[in-house]
Amino acid sequence: MPHRTRPMTGLLVFMGVNLALVSTITPVYDFVCFHPYWERRV
């Protein structure tokens, strides 16, 4: 394992990538869920 020598660095990078993914996906998820198109379709 390459992160065996620096487990803290690997953990921080992993958390940073997850945070970036969540922060970019959340607005898109809200936009898709609350779009008026679904209200008109029903």
Rank of each mutant, 00 (worst) to 15 (best):
M1T: 03
M1K: 04
P2R: 00
H3I: 11
H3F: 09
R4T: 10
R4D: 11
T5N: 10
R6F: 02
P7M: 00
M8I: 14
T9Y: 02
T9M: 13
G10H: 04
L11P: 00
L12Y: 01
L12G: 08
L12S: 01
V13P: 00
F14M: 09
F14R: 02
F14W: 07
M15W: 09
M15H: 01
M15N: 09
G16E: 02
G16D: 02
V17R: 13
V17W: 02
V17I: 11
N18P: 10
N18K: 04
N18H: 05
L19T: 05
L19P: 00
L19D: 01
A20Q: 10
L21D: 04
L21S: 05
L21F: 12
V22E: 14
S23D: 02
T24P: 04
I25Y: 10
I25C: 12
I25R: 07
I25T: 15
T26I: 09
T26M: 12
T26G: 08
P27L: 07
V28A: 15
V28F: 07
Y29Q: 06
Y29P: 02
Y29G: 08
D30K: 13
F31D: 09
F31V: 06
V32R: 02
C33R: 15
C33H: 15
F34A: 09
F34H: 15
H35N: 15
P36I: 04
W38G: 00
W38F: 13
R40M: 13
R41H: 14
R41S: 06
R41E: 12
V42M: 11
V42F: 04
